[in-house]
Write a protein that binds this DNA or RNA. Structure first.
Lengths: 334, 334
DNA sequence: TTTTATTTTTCAATCGTTTGCATATGAAAC
DNA sequence: GTTTCATATGCAAACGATTGAAAAATAAAA
């Protein structure tokens, strides 16, 4: 119940608390003898530093906060894995929170982490975060923030991204090369930069193929149910052939499900491609063609960027943006 | 950068810090007038209480810690959802950590949360946690802990579980009633109580059916790859017919994949059933028969139990164990 | 032996709250 | 005009660490 404090050690050893504190943190001007003495006594008593007290004094901690839309998506879960890997290695612990795609929850988590004086926050913003105000406020207060994947373009902080434009562009071109007369885009909300970029990539590829009049991009959510509904809408809109480029795998999977229910020949009449290479894409029939996002690597890089600015805040002046490579995974739906 | 503290408010209002503190926390013996005055000034200055300082003084916080083996499993992600739902409603924030099925990581997270003075911890233990020592130590120090699903049987704290025995028993019986001559169990490590109970349920059903000599239970991990390998082993062991009761969905999915590769007729020759009703079970072909675990409800209940003992620690004397119902989801693999 | 330099240790303030106890204020009771 | 009793506010000590500056102890130089 009661904690062993620095005071207890000091009392037992007839030393002052400051000496004990300095001994434990390997302060230079202390005899090795006392250091050893203090340390062994600390071990003997089972002393654990009170990091709350330390945080109060130093107004920082060894915690890194992670905020993602939904932890159950393999993309985020994987990125978290990557973050934890390097964070733990460098002596940080992590705490995770999810926004559930709600900006209100995002703000609560953000503030809670700030108040708990995390030494930095790695975030991927929610679908409903249209304004960057809540992040901006913290950045102005000096909080270290790094974005991965979903970011605010107007915030000048370190970021880890993929080349969304290029990936969508390449996949669109590839689909056309497979003989599809046109590509339809099942996109996400355009205030998310990744969605906007993917759409731009799609449009560029269509334009270059002389298909600007065929450009058709729906704007919707990023859930499986959204894909399901969009597929329905597409059929209702009278489109019976073409390839669908979905903004992510869940949307692609949902669309695929609806197309299958309609008994549409895939990839004969309609093609589908997703984004992320979710493990599920390989387990369903037909196996989904998709774009591999290096989530582990993204997480690792984000953590490295964050720790970099934690260790040397001056690096915040010129924040890096790291763009990682994607890979097309061609399976059975295109 | 610099925080507005209670002192600033006090200075502006010519009041003492204690009065301000009491005004903000609605202390009884204070005139409503000063309370209002203080509160409006606090709002005006944008005051945010420093919860680190508060934690230090009160040696507790409004944070609930959650530790699970892997957040990417829908079962845990769903339970976390449930926990967050009630936690937020009651004014707590949550922090999540994953053990990655490693007891070392579990211990690190546990200690980190303790040191950060969370007001309680909800946990589901890792596969490799054979001893409950690390939890026991914290419980002895008065930390509030609640387990859900995977627990230590020797720890007398509140728990939320399903009736693993009954669920396995029922499913085994059901499989036999479908005409399978025997059921083989793909089980998890027996030091996990859930695995042991599921196995016991299986054995009981087999015994009651007069099949004790046919009891065959493999003991393995709980991943898809484990299921894949076990299926291979089963075939190699010369078993060509029977129903497989897997300890969870990933194992069932892995087994199914291997059986399909062997071109085994499912459910003609071999049946398969999982545990959890992971969404993927419905997306694969053939759709997997499984047992639905009410993860959301488990999370909610766990949070309620925890908050109960946080609010009234005397309730820890007689910790509740809540057993929730499961449901068989019959699909195409049995 | 005294002075100076150097190493080692201690003092005391600080971080931002909370809270037991003391005090001030004002009204009611005598 | 005291005494009494609420009611309202302030003082000051915690909580457990860190840290600049001062003091003490020791060693080296004069």
């Amino acid at each position: 119940m009661k904690q062993i404090t620095i005071k207890h050690i000091a009392a037992e050893l007839n030393l002052s608390v400051s000496t004990v504190s300095r001994a434990l943190t390997d302060y230079p001007n202390l005899s090795q003898a006392t250091k050893d003495l203090v340390k062994s006594k600390a071990k003997e008593l089972g002393y654990r530093p009170n990091i709350i007290a330390r945080s109060l004094k130093c107004s920082t901690s060894d915690q890194i906060g992670i905020i993602v839309p939904e932890i159950r998506h393999i993309f985020f879960a994987g990125a978290i894995h990557g973050i934890e890997e390097v964070a733990y290695k460098k002596g940080f612990t992590t705490i995770i929170a999810q926004s559930n795609e709600e900006v209100e929850r995002e703000e609560i988590n953000l503030n809670s982490m700030y108040l708990h004086r995390v030494s930095g926050i790695i975030a991927s913003i929610s679908q409903t975060s249209t304004s960057s105000e809540h992040f901006k406020k913290l950045i102005d207060r000096g909080v270290n923030i790094v974005f991965f994947d979903r970011d605010f373009e107007d915030l000048n902080v370190p970021k880890v991204k993929i080349d969304d434009f290029a990936a969508a562009y390449k996949m669109t071109k590839f689909m056309l090369s497979r003989g599809f007369k046109k590509v339809i885009h099942f996109g996400g909300h355009l205030h998310l930069s990744i969605c906007r970029l993917r759409r731009n990539g799609y449009e560029q590829a269509m334009t270059e193929a002389g298909l600007e009049k065929e450009i058709l991009a729906y704007e919707s959510g990023m859930l499986e149910s959204d894909g399901y509904l969009l597929a329905e809408r597409m059929i209702k809109d009278g489109i019976k052939e073409g390839a669908v480029l979905a903004v992510n795998d869940p949307v692609a999977v949902g669309a695929l499900r609806r197309f299958k229910e309609f008994n549409i020949d895939i990839p004969g009449k309609v093609g589908v491609a997703g984004f992320s290479n979710n493990p599920i894409t390989e387990m369903i029939t037909p196996r989904l063609t998709t774009i591999e996002q290096p989530f582990l690597e993204m997480g690792r890089t984000a953590a490295e960027l964050l720790i970099e600015i934690i260790k040397d805040p001056s690096k915040k002046e010129n924040p890096k943006t790291v763009i990682l490579d994607t890979k097309m995974i061609i399976r059975d739906t295109v």
